[in-house]
Amino acid sequence: MNAPAITMGESPARRALKRFFRHKLAVFGLVVVVAFVLIALLAPFIAPYDPLQTSWTRIRKPPSAEHWFGTDENGRDVLSRVIWGARASLMAGVISVLGALFIGVPLGLLAGLIGGWVDGLISRVADAMLSVPFLILAIALAAFLGPALENAMLAIAITASPVFVRLARGMALDAKSTDWVEAARALGNPPWRIGLFHVLPNIIPPLLVQASLAIAEAIIAEASLSFLGLGQQPPAPSWGSMLNSAQRFLTQAPWLSIMPGLAIFVVVLAFNLVGDGLRDALDPRADRK
């Protein structure tokens, strides 16, 4: 018997994407995010000056045609530093959230699907971590690991993971009580296949929403750690460390703090808009609209 031509249906992901693109603010957020990603990737080509090049003749000059964002206390071009700083911020945001997903989701799935003492152990540790304020824990971990951008990212990844443990666990518990998981069991699926091929694909939407919001938080956390000297190390630029050195010149050279501050604000806002849009697009209740 020959197989007939098969019509492909509209997948749930495609449907969500369609809904996402109807959401104007979210699309705007996505455009801003993509723009910053391009800026970070193309920094060597679009930065007008070397971000590390100091000059004693151009110290703390206000914005001008030559230096759009002005120059800093060492005569470095602020625009170039903001452009290069996008690398540190976005990398810290994306990589640390990927790390948090990598740590949190498997643990959450195990806790939700296995239950019993495994759940008890994982959930109590996650609860304990969540009981400490996010930034305090990140600072403690980063200080323990030593000041470096990589360590800051690792600290943020660990600190952000309990949220994903809780989310994945809750969604796995929900999924466990559905008929389709029981059907998967009745078909003869081993437990690991149920977790990996049935439950995981179904909990990706809420994880995606949480991840995009977590990136915004991680960017702020990286900026805070760098501000405190625990992240990106001088002279390499990062928005947080730029704010740190700018605080001494708040009144004399306000552009030193306004420019990186604005960059943080815009990127964090953009990620939040994307997260909200994703939430609306992926919410199963939105199907009725």
Binding site: G9, S11, P12, D179, W180, A186, L187, G188, N189, P201
Partner: peptide, 26 residues
């Protein structure tokens, strides 16, 4: 493992057709 292999010979049809199919599988 032996029980899973046995499931080839015994199947079930559930009541709710909106709940028994994995929404992310064609």
């Amino acid at each position: 493992a032996a029980l899973r292999a046995r499931r080839r010979d015994m199947q079930i049809i559930f009541q709710d057709p909106f709940g028994s199919l994995d929404p992310r599988m064609t």
